[in-house]
């Protein structure tokens, strides 16, 4: 899923400083699963902003709603009746949400209430970790399901760098060196020689380096 974190309340309050009536829109997709922009979080944000503005004696009228996905125009369309009744709209979806909303309703101002961080999963209750970099050329099968692109700080493909120390990465003592993990896993499976393979230079054009990407499925287009 796409993982996001709510922006600091002070930043959100600054964004809506001049507004008196806002709508907060949640998303039932990834941000609901990572407990950042689902129904509960929308209500918590509304209450928090409400308290902050009441404290300043500048009450803010806040309405809340949630749609199935903010990254699908058919659901974004459901907001048409109400979206222009507000001074501004706060989107609690990933970065895709405010963009789809802005494209659909060009006359309205949309603010992102969350910072989109990475593609990952929940490793424990309340803890999410990055697992995918969306590089466009998946090779995790070569590394026993451990992605060196997303999980190595340098995205190395031929083994660890000199910064690997006692299973940890030099960038942070809490960060696992994924290459230590990959080598340990290969040794466990008796496949260490797999890592002798010399890889051709990687074509990063399938990743972000090639600019904004598009995926077209002809059988689905109308």
């Amino acid at each position: 899923m796409i993982v996001a974190d709510r922006k600091p309340l002070t930043e959100i309050l600054t964004m809506i400083e001049a507004q008196e009536k806002i709508l907060i829109v949640g998303c039932k997709g990834c941000v609901t699963v990572c407990n950042t922009g689902g129904l509960k979080e929308v209500e918590i944000l509304a209450s928090s902003l409400g308290i902050a503005r009441k404290k300043e004696n500048r009450p803010l009228t806040i309405d809340t709603t949630i749609i199935e996905r903010q990254c699908d125009n058919e659901y974004v369309e459901q907001l048409r009746d109400k979206v222009n009744d507000y001074d501004a709209v706060l989107s609690m979806a990933c970065g895709v949400g405010p963009q789809f909303l802005s494209e659909a309703y060009p006359g309205q101002k949309f603010y992102p209430a969350v910072n989109t961080t990475f593609y990952g999963g929940a490793v424990a209750h309340g803890i999410w970790e990055e697992r995918c970099a969306g590089c466009g050329t998946c090779i995790i099968h070569d590394f026993e399901g451990l992605c060196p692109i997303a999980r190595c700080a340098k995205s190395l493909l031929h083994g660890p760098c000199g910064g690997s120390s006692q299973t940890k990465c030099e960038i942070n003592p809490d960060t696992q060196c994924i290459w230590d993990h990959i080598v340990a896993r290969k040794m466990e499976l008796g496949k260490l020689e797999d890592l002798m393979k010399v890889r051709e230079l990687r074509d990063w054009r399938s990743a972000r380096d090639g600019g904004p990407r598009q995926s077209i499925r002809e059988e689905l287009t109308q």
Binding site: L9, T10, S48, A52, K55
Partner: peptide, 8 residues
């Protein structure tokens, strides 16, 4: 934490 963030 929320209260602290909003100055309460």
């Amino acid at each position: 934490k929320i209260l602290e963030e909003i100055g309460m």
